[in-house]
Amino acid sequence: MKNIADNRFFNMILLFTIIGEFIVPWILEQFYSEYNGKIMVMSALGSPQSPVRLIYNLWLVWLGGFLAYTAGAYFLSLRAKFPILAVFMLLSIGIFAVGAGLISGFFSVNESKDIVTTASKIHGVGAAIGFMALLIFSLLNGIVSFKQNNMIEGIISISSFVLSLIFFACFVMGDKEQFQNTILKYEGLWERLALFCMYIPFVYNSMSNLFF
C-alpha cells in the first residue's frame, strides 16, 4: 500500500497550502489599508480591527487542519524505518499546526501590540510554540534524508534549518524596542523569510513525488 505522503493528490494540496501561506496574506493586505506587510506580522490580518479577519482566520484554521493531517501522513510514512524520528516529526508539524494554525485562527491577536487581551495572549503563546516546533522539522528531515542516502535533500534541509534559525532570530529581535531603528524592525519580512525556509523541505518532498 502506498504511503499517504507519496500520494499525488495529497502533495498537490500540500503545495497549494504552502503557496497559499504567502499568497493569501498578500491578496488580503490589498484590502487592509492600515496593514504594512514589511513591519506587521501576518496574524494582524486576523485582528478584530481587520476588514479581512474572517477570511484570514478561516485560512489559519484550514492551514492548521491540513498540516495536522500532514503530520500524521509523515509519521505513518516513516514510523517503520525511523520510529523515534517519526514521533519527533509528528510533534514538530503537529504542534505548529495546532499552535500557529488552529489556535491562532480561533484566538486573534490585536493590530496594536499595546492592546493585550486573553485571546491575544493565547494566540501569542500558541504561535510562538508552533514556530519553534516547526523550526526543527528541517533538521529532522535532513537527518532522515542522510540516513536514506539522499544527499541532495539532506543538504537542502540542513541549509533550510540554518536559514530558518537566522531569520527566526531576526524576527524575535525585531520585536525588541532597541532594534526599532534597524533593519530588524521589519518583523513581517523576517517572519515570512523564516516560514519560507521552514517550508522548503515540504516543497522539495512534494515536488519530488509529483514530478520525479
Rank of each mutant, 00 (worst) to 15 (best):
G99Y: 10
F66V: 05
T117C: 01
A71Y: 00
V144G: 03
Y74K: 08
S92E: 00
K121D: 13
L91D: 03
L76K: 13
A127N: 09
S138Y: 00
K147Q: 14
I122V: 15
S138I: 04
R79A: 02
L54M: 12
S108R: 13
I115D: 13
I93W: 04
Y69S: 00
G94M: 01
G99K: 09
I156R: 04
N141K: 10
L76W: 10
T117S: 09
G154T: 08
S108F: 00
T118P: 01
G126C: 10
S47N: 07
A97W: 05
K113W: 12
K81V: 08
L58T: 08
A127Q: 11
S138L: 00
I143P: 05
P51W: 01
A73G: 05
I129F: 12
F137C: 06
F107S: 09
I152Q: 14
I115K: 13
L78M: 12
P83M: 05
V116K: 03
G64W: 03
A128D: 10
W62K: 02
G130T: 08
V98L: 15
D114C: 04
V109K: 08
L91V: 13
A73H: 03
L54I: 14
L67N: 11
G124D: 06
F131S: 07
A119T: 15
G124N: 12
A86Y: 06
S145R: 08
K113D: 14
G72W: 02
L90V: 04
L63K: 04
G130Q: 09
F106W: 15
F96Y: 15
A97I: 08
S47R: 03
L78H: 11
E153G: 15
V116P: 02
M89H: 09
I93D: 05
L85I: 06
M132I: 12
I84M: 13
L140M: 05
T117K: 08
I95P: 10
A97F: 04
G65V: 02
R53E: 10
L102M: 14
G101Q: 07
A86E: 01
A80S: 14
V52T: 10
G94D: 01
I115L: 14
G101K: 02
I93F: 06
S47V: 07
I95D: 08
V125P: 07
I55Y: 13
F106K: 09
V52Y: 00
L139Y: 10
P48N: 06
L102D: 06
S145P: 05
P51E: 01
I136T: 13
A68G: 04
F75I: 03
L58Q: 10
G101I: 12
G154I: 03
T118R: 12
